[in-house]
Amino acid sequence: MLLDPGTGPVRAATYLPATPGNVLWGRLPCAADAPVLTVDPGTEVTVDTLSHEGLLEDQGRDPRAFFAAHGLVDVLADAVALAASDHPRDPGADGPHVVTGPIAVRGARPGDVLAITVVEALPRVPYGVISNRHGRGALPGEMPEGGVDVVSVVARLDASGARAVMPRAAGSERTVSFPLAPFPGILGVAVAGDERPHSVPPGAHGGNLDINLLQAGATLYLPVQVDGALAYVGDPHFAQGDGEVALTALEASLRVTLRLDLLPRADAVAALGDLSGPLVRTAEHLVPTGLDVDLDEALRRCVRAALDLLGARFGMDRAHALAYLSAATDFDVSQVVDRVTGVHARIRLADFDEPSDDGARP
Score class of each variant (00 low, 15 high):
347 I>V: 11
18 A>P: 05
253 S>P: 06
245 V>L: 15
199 S>V: 06
217 G>C: 01
256 V>L: 07
214 L>W: 08
235 D>Q: 02
285 H>S: 12
221 Y>W: 09
329 T>F: 01
329 T>M: 04
101 G>D: 04
259 R>G: 04
172 S>V: 07
362 P>Q: 14
12 A>S: 10
237 H>M: 02
355 P>G: 02
10 V>R: 04
61 R>L: 05
324 Y>V: 06
284 E>H: 12
195 E>P: 09
359 G>C: 01
195 E>C: 15
306 A>L: 10
183 F>C: 14
200 V>D: 13
296 D>H: 04
44 E>Y: 05
360 A>T: 07
248 T>K: 01
112 D>W: 03
4 D>H: 11
223 P>Q: 01
129 V>I: 01
318 R>H: 15
38 T>K: 03
304 R>T: 15
154 V>C: 04
24 L>K: 07
130 I>K: 13
244 E>T: 11
341 T>W: 03
131 S>G: 12
122 L>K: 07
304 R>M: 13
84 A>S: 13
266 A>G: 04
128 G>R: 02
293 V>A: 14
311 G>R: 02
50 L>Q: 03
27 R>C: 05
126 P>G: 10
316 M>N: 04
122 L>F: 03
156 R>H: 12
37 L>D: 10
49 T>F: 00
65 A>R: 12
63 P>M: 00
125 V>Q: 13
236 P>K: 00
125 V>D: 10
20 P>D: 02
59 Q>H: 01
326 S>P: 14
13 A>Y: 11
267 D>Q: 15
70 H>V: 01
45 V>H: 05
3 L>R: 15
183 F>R: 00
348 R>G: 07
301 R>W: 13
117 T>Y: 03
233 V>Y: 06
339 R>W: 15
96 P>A: 14
14 T>A: 12
135 G>C: 01
265 R>P: 13
191 V>R: 12
184 P>S: 01
193 G>I: 02
34 A>F: 09
214 L>Y: 03
335 Q>S: 09
39 V>D: 05
102 P>H: 06
32 A>F: 10
211 I>Q: 07
311 G>K: 09
323 A>W: 13
232 Y>M: 07
21 G>D: 13
83 A>D: 07
10 V>H: 04
110 P>H: 02
227 D>M: 00
111 G>C: 11
263 L>F: 11
232 Y>N: 07
308 D>S: 15
218 A>S: 08
117 T>H: 02
356 S>T: 07
40 D>M: 09
113 V>Y: 01
352 F>Q: 06
168 R>P: 08
149 D>V: 12
70 H>F: 08
253 S>H: 02
322 L>I: 13
357 D>S: 10
55 L>W: 08
69 A>M: 08
362 P>D: 15
313 R>Y: 05
79 A>P: 09
336 V>Y: 09
173 E>W: 14
149 D>W: 10
291 L>A: 04
160 S>M: 00
220 L>I: 09
321 A>C: 00
27 R>Q: 12
253 S>N: 02
59 Q>V: 03
22 N>T: 06
353 D>E: 12
325 L>N: 04
222 L>H: 05
75 V>E: 10
61 R>P: 10
47 V>H: 07
